[in-house]
């Protein structure tokens, strides 16, 4: 009886794991299919779709655009996020709890509403639908990621560290750069990697703010709307490999604490 129950539990656990991973394996597997119809079983294997991908100019442009947006908005979120996380940790403000909730809105509320809200107002503010608008949209939700990640690390930090630095004669800037920053370094690296991955994958807000130039997920979205092309299998496999690598690194950095 006990054995049967243990078997049922592990069997269902592995079934769920299988459900989580088999669609990804299917994509990787079919990216090596020579035929353009994704039917089963595969008769000839080839790297044709990867070669096609590297000659697809609009895809290459989309990758470039995605990198530019991800790096610039992550940087902006860092510049705004680190000092505010530090201040929010150290000082008390009137309406601080409200502010903490407000920061989280872009990740708790449906992206589509944030997207259409920005779409409606930005042109009136003199920001046309463009990569500039996408940059602002991404930075707004990446700030939420940065602040929550860094604030969590600050809370674990020994409060006497900074005091000790002051006692030993450090100026506030010296204390920040020589004592605080090295201690939150891994949290920052983790948050940066997560921000890059999230920005590279963002659709709901980008969808409404983009004009002519596509980001990578929007380009894939467009290809998918036109039908199944095995090129998407190849690009999906690459995206999967690169984002897994980034995630592994960021998990490692988070664990180090």
């Amino acid at each position: 009886m006990k054995k049967i129950r243990a078997f049922i539990i592990s069997f269902s656990a592995f079934s769920v794991l299988w459900f989580l991973y088999f669609p990804i394996f299917i994509i990787i597997w079919f990216s090596f299919n020579k035929e353009s119809v994704s039917s089963f079983p595969i008769e000839h294997y080839s790297l044709d779709w990867y070669i096609k991908l590297f000659h697809n100019q609009s895809m290459i442009n989309a990758v470039e655009v995605s990198f530019i947006i991800a790096i610039s908005s992550t940087l902006a979120a860092l510049i705004i996020g680190i000092p505010s996380a530090y201040a929010l940790h150290k000082y008390n403000y009137f309406g601080k709890n409200f502010l903490l909730k407000l920061i989280l809105l872009p990740i708790t509320l449906p992206g589509i509403v944030t997207g259409v809200a920005m779409l409606s107002l930005f042109p009136l503010m003199g920001i046309p639908l463009s990569l500039k608008a996408v940059f602002i949209g991404h930075t707004t939700f990446l700030i939420a990621i940065m602040i929550t990640q860094i604030l969590a690390r600050f809370k674990k930090l020994d409060p006497y560290l900074e005091m000790a630095a002051f006692d030993l004669g450090a100026s506030p800037l010296q204390a920040f750069f020589k004592v605080i920053l090295p201690n939150i370094k891994t949290a920052i690296i983790g948050a940066v990697l997560l921000s890059l991955v999230l920005s590279m994958d963002e659709i709901p807000v980008t969808f409404f703010l983009i004009s002519r130039e596509n980001t990578l997920p929007i380009e894939i979205y467009g290809m998918m709307r036109r039908g199944i092309t095995p090129e998407v299998n190849a690009v999906a496999t690459l995206v999967f490999l690169i984002s897994s690598a980034a995630i592994f690194i960021s998990l490692k950095f988070n664990k180090e604490n």
């Binding site: 989580l20 991973y21 669609p23 990804i24 299917i26 994509i27 079919f30 119809v37 994704s38 039917s39 089963f40 997560l194 991955v197 999230l198 590279m200 994958d201 659709i203 997920p217 894939i220 979205y221 998918m224 199944i228 998407v232 299998n233 999906a236 995206v239 999967f240 984002s243 897994s244 995630i247």
Partner: peptide, 23 residues
């Protein structure tokens, strides 16, 4: 891992699996 994985890639997988000529 799947938590951080591309939304669009994971949605696309089901199109490949469930499509008329799909798996």
């Amino acid at each position: 891992l799947p938590f951080w994985m591309s939304y669009i890639v994971r949605a696309y997988a089901w199109k490949v699996i469930l499509g008329e000529n799909g798996i």
